[in-house]
Computed example of a mutant assay.
Amino acid sequence: MNIERYLTDHRQGTPRQILRLLRQGRVTVNDAAVDSPLTDVVKADQVRVDGMAVTGRQPQYLIFNKPIGFQLSMDPTSAHSLGSLLNTLDQVRPLKALADLPKEATGLALASDDDHFLTDVAAQKWVSTLRLPLAGVVTELPTLAADLTFSAVKLVPDTLHQTTTATVQTRDLNAAVPTLLALKAINGPVSRVALGPMALPVDLSVASYRGLFPTEIDDLNGPLESSTDSQTETPSKLG
């Protein structure tokens, strides 16, 4: 059996993840690093990923709809943390969160027990799409249009209810969220509704989470052969 099939059978990730493991030199057979998916292995071989014996335990990849005011700590005993939202089975996992969404914002947050996955996602420098409600019919926000923190600003006024939905894109959440919260017309929370190719599922209620699908994991990791342009390309448009 080749190493690619072996790692697939032992639930070490999607086919593209397994190729990534091999290319990153994270797979060893009998303490020797292997990078070819065609390397043969037998039952007596000691196969390890990141120095850990392959046992069939699948890494965990989670997407949360983070409530406002919640920290990104995965400690289940810490109040107002992502960890406090975990069910009993997931609490025993050594999970970490992608440390990018301020506690003042709500919406899409990621967590995993695969440190390399979180590192790879962070390296893509994906654009975050933020949404916030505004009071009144707002047709322009000159302060945001002139702010290089934001790569796109879209306003959708609702004349019937006298409200406006603003959607913006940014790569600098630490600067963007305070700027948005300081808007005089803001009338609700700032919510991240997308991170690069990953949109917040419409059926994922606030304070809940689910596992990522294999295609979502691959999309967030970015291409195997990535250039500067492909890493920073904005995958969605506000139109």
Results as ranks from 00 to 15, higher is better:
Met1Gly: 11
Ile3Cys: 05
Arg5Thr: 14
Arg5Lys: 13
Leu7Phe: 00
Asp9Cys: 10
Arg11Asp: 03
Gln12Ala: 08
Pro15Thr: 03
Arg16Ser: 12
Gln17Trp: 05
Leu19Thr: 10
Leu21Gln: 04
Leu22Lys: 02
Gln24Met: 15
Arg26Phe: 09
Arg26Ile: 01
Val27Gln: 01
Asn30Ile: 06
Asp31Lys: 13
Ala33Gln: 15
Val34Gly: 03
Asp35Val: 14
Ser36Arg: 14
Thr39Trp: 06
Val41Met: 05
Val42Ser: 15
Val47Cys: 05
Val47His: 04
Val49His: 01
Asp50Thr: 09
Asp50Asn: 15
Gly51Cys: 06
Ala53Leu: 14
Val54Gly: 03
Val54Lys: 01
Gln58Trp: 06
Pro59Tyr: 07
Leu62Gly: 03
Pro67Ala: 04
Pro67Leu: 03
Pro67Ile: 02
Phe70Tyr: 15
Phe70Arg: 08
Gln71Tyr: 11
Gln71Met: 14
Gln71Ile: 11
Met74Ile: 08
Asp75Gly: 08
Ala79Val: 12
Gly83Asp: 00
Ser84Gly: 10
Leu85Asp: 00
Leu89Pro: 11
Gln91Pro: 04
Arg93Gly: 04
Leu95Ala: 01
Thr106Leu: 08
Gly107Ser: 04
Leu108Glu: 06
Leu108Ser: 06
Leu110Met: 01
Leu110Phe: 06
Ser112Val: 06
Phe117Glu: 01
Asp120His: 12
Val121His: 02
Ala123Thr: 10
Gln124Ala: 10
Gln124Gly: 09
Lys125Pro: 07
Ala135Cys: 10
Val138Met: 00
Leu141His: 02
Pro142Asp: 07
Pro142Thr: 06
Leu144Glu: 02
Leu144Gly: 03
Leu148Lys: 12
Phe150Gly: 02
Ala152Asp: 12
Lys154Ser: 14
Leu155Glu: 04
Val156Asp: 15
His161Met: 12
Thr163Pro: 00
Thr163Gln: 12
Ala166Ile: 08
Val168Leu: 03
Val168Thr: 01
Thr170Arg: 06
Thr170Lys: 05
Arg171Tyr: 02
Leu180His: 02
Leu180Val: 00
Leu181Ala: 07
Ala182His: 08
Lys184Arg: 11
Val190Ser: 03
Val193Ile: 15
Ala194Arg: 06
Gly196Ser: 02
Pro197Thr: 09
Ala199Pro: 01
Val202Tyr: 04
Ser205Glu: 12
Val206Phe: 00
Val206Glu: 12
Ala207Asn: 09
Ser208Gly: 09
Ser208Asp: 11
Arg210Ala: 07
Phe213Gly: 09
Leu220Val: 03
Asn221Phe: 10
Leu224Gly: 13
Leu224Arg: 11
Ser226Gln: 10
Thr228Cys: 11
Thr228Arg: 13
Gln231His: 10
Thr234Trp: 08
Ser236Glu: 13
Ser236Tyr: 09
Lys237Ala: 13
Leu238Gln: 09
Gly239Val: 13
